[in-house]
């Protein structure tokens, strides 16, 4: 793999350079051990494909999504306006992110506050890289693997993107199998709306268990995810069912990298 590193915007600015795209890492991608693996996989792919990319690094801050969904509009807008000042200061035009929550917030809720960017989810960006030939998958190491895909609510229902992740699974030549509830009818993993940060209300089952059971019905070798929070919820579900030995929960960036021998 590439030994290059990913520059920060501050470095770029110092050299008088402008990236073609900013990689918005997000809080989970920056701090959560599991999600950091997704971040690194995606960063390696970008560098491999020769994308002129930068990160905000220490200047990135929470988009405010969990605060807004918890009802704290004030904190959300404080975060948003601070981030917008930073992004506009660097004259950012295009953003790609591995988190559907960041994606949704940056894309839909920042414009009214003065932040206008072209925002892409990493599955959309990867699809574009593959289609334009900037990235080629030649290893076929996941060929024939039985994979199901869990739609993240904030990519799917919230923004109508169902095809990009499925296109990636097709590209790695896996044996794709849909869950009963998929696309616009996909069941939430249970983490959205700030649920990630609190105990669930009283009920007869946890949502991630319900969803994991549905995923297991498809008898997959891999459950593909496209959101760091879904990834955590599904991984916990698989552990709860004591299937972590045989079933992996992997992000699409990881799958694309694993599919092997990326070339640009």
């Amino acid at each position: 793999m590439s030994q290059q590193s990913i520059p920060s915007m501050a470095d770029m600015m110092a050299q008088g350079k402008q990236p073609e795209v900013l990689f918005w890492v997000g809080c989970a991608g920056s701090f959560d051990d599991r999600a950091k693996k997704i971040t690194k996989a995606f960063a390696r792919i970008l560098l491999q494909a020769g994308v002129n990319v930068a990160i905000l690094g220490k200047e990135e801050s929470c988009t405010g999504d969990p605060a807004k969904r918890a009802g704290n509009e004030f904190l959300f807008q404080m975060q948003a306006m601070t981030n917008i000042e930073v992004l506009n200061g660097y004259e950012i035009k295009k953003i790609v992110t591995t988190c559907p929550h960041c994606f949704n917030t940056l894309k839909n809720e920042y414009p009214a506050l003065g932040g206008n960017y072209e925002v892409m989810h990493h599955t959309q960006y990867l699809k574009e890289l593959l289609e334009s030939g900037k990235l080629k998958i030649e290893g076929g190491k996941l060929k024939g693997k039985r994979i199901t895909f869990h739609d993240p609510c904030y990519l799917g229902r919230a923004n109508g993107e169902y095809e990009a992740p499925r296109k990636l699974i097709e590209t790695i030549e896996a044996e794709f199998v849909e869950m009963r509830r998929c696309k616009s009818k996909g069941l939430c993993c249970g983490a959205g709306g700030a649920q990630m940060f609190k105990e669930p209300e009283k009920g007869n089952k946890d949502i991630n268990i319900e969803r994991t059971e549905e995923a297991l019905e498809t008898q997959p070798e891999i459950i593909a995810a496209a959101c760091p929070f879904c990834n955590t919820m599904m991984s916990d579900g698989v552990k709860n069912k004591e299937k972590e030995g045989s079933i992996k929960v992997l992000d699409l960036a990881e799958l694309v990298e694993m599919a092997g021998d990326l070339s640009s």
């Binding site: 590193s5 690094g57 990135e60 975060q79």
Partner: peptide, 19 residues
């Protein structure tokens, strides 16, 4: 901290040195 967990903002890009 600019994150929903108690991590220092200065550590946000630690992952980048582990590529």
């Amino acid at each position: 901290n600019g994150a929903p967990w108690q991590f220092a903002q200065a550590d946000r890009d630690n992952w980048a040195s582990e590529l």
